[in-house]
Each structure stands twice: as structure tokens, then as C-alpha cells.
Computed example of a mutant assay.
Amino acid sequence: MELVIILLIALLYSSGVYMLLRRSMVKLLIGVMLLGNGTNLLIFLMGRITRGNPPVIPDNLSVLTEPFDDPIPQALILTAIVISFGLQAFSIVLLKRVYVLVNSDDLDDLNTPEEINDI
């Protein structure tokens, strides 16, 4: 199971970097999203996937016994998902505003001065 997740992480990272290198603003945003999802899976994998009890201490015990899942990677991933959703929502609104002003999706059009566009 871990090998499949490793291959999925490699696929997400490689496709995310490929999309970052494109000239389109939308593809840039998709690349950032793919890299974020790959990072979430990497954190999940590094937290050691175990099939066991949830990390809750029963009333009759004072110490948690093995096997149990580590709650820290799960909390980090949940926080990262919420932050990435806010970043993606802001980026979509920003990209729409830039597209309305520039009338182009190409990143190279953002670097040209307005005088060159008028000629």
C-alpha cells in the first residue's frame, strides 16, 4: 500500500512541477494545487499508516496501548487542507481580476508595458 502512495506522490509532484512551468496562469494555479495535495499525502505517509485503534484513551486506562494512529499528521493535514482551500479561493479571484484587466491568460503578457501593447 505504501508503494502505491509513493508512486501517487511522485505523480502529483511531477505533474505539479510540469504545470508550474507552463505559461498559463490557470495551469500555474493547478500546479500549486497538485503540489499541495502531494505534500499532504507525503505528510500522511510519513505519519506511519497503521490499522488500529483511534488515538483516544479509554476510561479504564491511564496510558494508550499499541496499536494506535498518530493524531499529529492527521491534524497537520487537516490544517493544510483548510489553508490551501483559502489560498486557492483567493488565487482564483485574483486570477479572474488579472484576466479582466489584461485580457490574456499568458504570464508573459503581465511583464510587457502598456506602451508596447498600444503600438
Rank of each mutant, 00 (worst) to 15 (best):
F85R: 10
L64R: 03
G52A: 10
P113N: 12
L101W: 15
V93F: 09
T39A: 06
L87F: 15
F68S: 15
V26D: 08
V56Q: 07
I81C: 15
P71T: 15
I49D: 12
V93P: 06
D106C: 05
L35C: 01
V82Q: 05
L64E: 01
D109T: 01
I30H: 07
L20G: 03
L35N: 00
L76A: 06
L94C: 06
S84V: 14
S84W: 05
V98R: 13
L42N: 02
L3C: 12
L94V: 08
L20H: 08
K27M: 13
V17D: 04
F90R: 10
L78D: 12
I6Y: 12
I81R: 01
P58E: 01
M33H: 08
V4R: 11
D105G: 11
V26C: 11
A10Q: 00
L8M: 05
M33T: 00
R97D: 13
V102R: 11
G16E: 02
M25D: 08
Y18I: 04
M1G: 15
I9A: 02
R97Y: 12
P71A: 02
V17C: 10
A10R: 00
V93Y: 10
M25R: 15
D59Q: 12
P54V: 06
M1V: 13
L76E: 03
L41A: 04
G52D: 08
E66T: 07
L87K: 08
G86P: 05
I83M: 11
M19E: 12
I9H: 02
P54D: 14
V32W: 04
P71H: 10
R48E: 04
K96R: 05
L110H: 01
L20P: 05
I119R: 09
M19Q: 10
D106R: 05
L20N: 09
T112G: 03
T65N: 15
L87E: 07
L20T: 02
L35M: 05
V32R: 03
P71C: 13
E115A: 10
Q88N: 14
L45M: 14
A75D: 07
M46H: 06
V100F: 13
L3G: 15
R97A: 12
T79A: 10
L42M: 10
V102E: 11
L42A: 04
E114S: 12
R22L: 10
V98Q: 07
L11G: 07
N37I: 06
V4C: 14
I83S: 14
G38H: 03
I57R: 05
I77Y: 04
L3F: 15
L28D: 05
I116N: 04
I92V: 14
E2I: 12
G16W: 06
R23A: 13
T112M: 07
L94T: 09
E114D: 11
V63N: 06
Y13K: 03
I57V: 06
G36Q: 00
E66G: 12
G47E: 07
F85N: 13
G36M: 00
S91Q: 01
S104D: 07
L41P: 00
I92P: 01
